[in-house]
Amino acid sequence: MSRWQTQPLLEVEHLTMRFGGLVAINDLSFTVGQGDITALIGPNGAGKTTVFNCITGFYKPTEGRIALRHGEQSIWQELPRATQASGRKWAKGGSSLWLLERMPDFEVSAHAKVARTFQNIRLFQGMTVLENLLVAQHNPLMLASGWSVLGILGFSGYKKSEKASIEKATYWLDKIGLIDRADDPAGDLPYGAQRRLEIARAMCTDPVLLCLDEPAAGLNPRESLELNTLLRSIRTDEGTSVLLIEHDMSVVMEISDHVVVLDYGTKISDGSPSEVKADPKVIAAYLGVEDDEVEEIEAEVAS
């Protein structure tokens, strides 16, 4: 048994998203294992980003359940009852279940601790690199500043937590190698550095699950390699599970523990990278042919 079956962190069940007559995602179910790097792959237009938008609350799915676990595995037994209840959160003991399909986007990040990045980088271009990382720590800082009241009056509690947040930002700047550019505007950074900064910014929200939408797009091979190292370290050092959409197979096959393949909104394959690579359905989807034509085409390509 693999980790995504024995220790699921996120369970997506029967997820369906329709835009008018278009079925973008059709009855999709998969799980993300705790401590895994899970890759969501598929040809262009397969619905990968739509899945991301459903998980992170930017879209409200037409049907389906998206449940996230904080704490012990045993809490999964409470899932039917959590679903019956009307709330977004079901807590028992120190553990809790979050039903993400019921939550608006900012609560998914603030309370369920799911962070994300975007396919087209969305940094705060006119703010410095450091400020970008401080904005990510908005909620704890807001609390420390007493919803700005204590902050305006200059209470020392806020200064302390601001110092702590700058330290945390420094830690991440060190990690992505941008410490020397901390005071430069984010819009001035080269493309690869902007991608890394967006990941660091998402990590500053202390997520349990990090969703990356094509983190390697536009990176050169060396930067891709650095990205692999960064993602591995996020998993092992921070204990954050990673869900990523990626077209760069060198990244997908190298670092992921679990691959889910989508085509036309339907899951066509699910398993370890080597299993998926060998799956004729996946090959057919990527080549754009029917399943039974795969052997023919492969022979043709080989000759």
Partner: peptide
């Protein structure tokens, strides 16, 4: 200021 720069990114960072 972050809102002025990019509202969607703000929401992805948990800002109401």
């Amino acid at each position: 200021e972050a809102l002025r720069e990019d509202e969607i990114a703000c929401r992805s960072l948990g800002i109401n």
